[in-house]
Design a protein around this nucleic acid. Structure first.
Length: 295
DNA sequence: CTTTTCTCCTGTATGC
DNA sequence: TGCATACAGGAGAAAA
């Protein structure tokens, strides 16, 4: 699943393959891919044509291209299975292809592919970046990103403030890690890994943890995402931007996520899987004891 | 305001 | 073999 490291790998690929190019054609193949664009897919496509992709930026799992001359943003969210692929101009439509941009230079097309269709595109205004005001972005951020918190890799990420906000919460610490308005970029995989590294069960209440412990969990979240990014970067193929290529290699380094029944790398106890928030949580029964009152 | 639950989607794996 | 069911889960709307 694309979380922060995978999205960053895609951002770097776009920087290399599409930034500074001008859109000459845009096709949206399904209404659903533009469902977050209120004016609809035709409007989105029309407004892209003739624009230059001036810059690519990211916050958490959101990705966007700054358009010139309109100074709007093409916002991309990959959802669970979205991919941006750079393919030779004019190649046949791909399986699960939902959108395609073609360029004035007759170079490769940019294709949005998404099997489970939780991802999508939108064209929105750029607004001043309030959340990241400590390290402002020259173009600002797209409207749908304005309510998203900074991610742990941003210069403007204020960890003491995030720790304080978490500590005030009456909710499970894993729920807080997944709340993109508190800290962005963390999904189910890296939440489980960060909690395993910290030796904390995800159903512990934030308010019952110490602030140093919460801070340590965020440190681990950052560390594990940087480690994944380092490996994703090495698996990047020069000819296309591939989300699966980014996460595939790091799979071998996961200690908890998806490791049900395998020995905990720290103590050897089999990793358990539990249902939480309508998804799966993976943890070590010995290193991450459950809080009281949780069966 | 804060916190939780529900819904969207389809390919793959598993069970009877 | 065939059909039904569970599962993967990000994010926003709706509900509590």
């Amino acid at each position: 699943m694309p979380e922060l490291p995978e999205v960053e790998v895609v951002r770097r690929g776009l920087e290399r393959h599409v930034v500074a190019r001008s859109v000459v054609g845009a096709a949206l193949h399904s209404a659903r891919v533009a469902r977050r664009h209120p004016a609809g897919g035709l409007d989105l496509a029309d407004r892209l044509i003739g624009q230059r992709l001036a810059e690519v930026d990211r916050r958490g799992k959101y990705l966007w291209l700054v358009l010139e001359p309109s100074l709007e943003a093409l916002v991309v969210h990959l959802g669970m299975s979205g991919q941006l692929l750079v393919v030779a101009a004019g190649t046949d439509r791909l399986r699960h292809e939902h959108a395609r941009l073609t360029f004035a230079d007759d170079g490769p097309d940019l294709v949005f592919v998404d099997q489970r269709t939780f991802g999508g595109l939108a064209l929105t205004d750029l607004v001043p970046d309030v959340r990241g005001a400590a390290a402002p972005r020259p173009y600002g951020v797209p409207t749908p990103v304005a309510h998203i918190a900074c991610d742990p890799l941003e210069a403007a990420f204020d960890q003491p403030a995030v720790v304080a906000a978490m500590w005030r919460r009456q909710s499970a610490v894993k729920r807080a890690l997944l709340d993109q308005s508190l800290v962005s970029g963390i999904g189910n995989i890296y939440a489980d890994e960060a909690l395993w590294r910290a030796g904390v069960h995800g159903q512990r209440l934030c308010a019952n943890l110490t602030r140093p412990t919460l801070s340590r969990i965020l440190d681990h979240a950052r560390d594990v995402m940087v480690a994944a990014l380092d490996q994703g970067g090495t698996s990047f193929d020069a000819t296309y931007v591939n989300v699966n290529g980014a996460s595939g290699y790091f799979d071998r380094s996961l200690a908890a996520y998806g490791q049900t029944g395998r020995p905990c790398p720290r103590c050897g106890t089999p990793i358990r899987r539990e249902a939480f928030m309508n998804r799966s949580s993976h943890s070590c029964p010995r290193c991450q004891p459950k809080p009281r009152g949780i069966p």
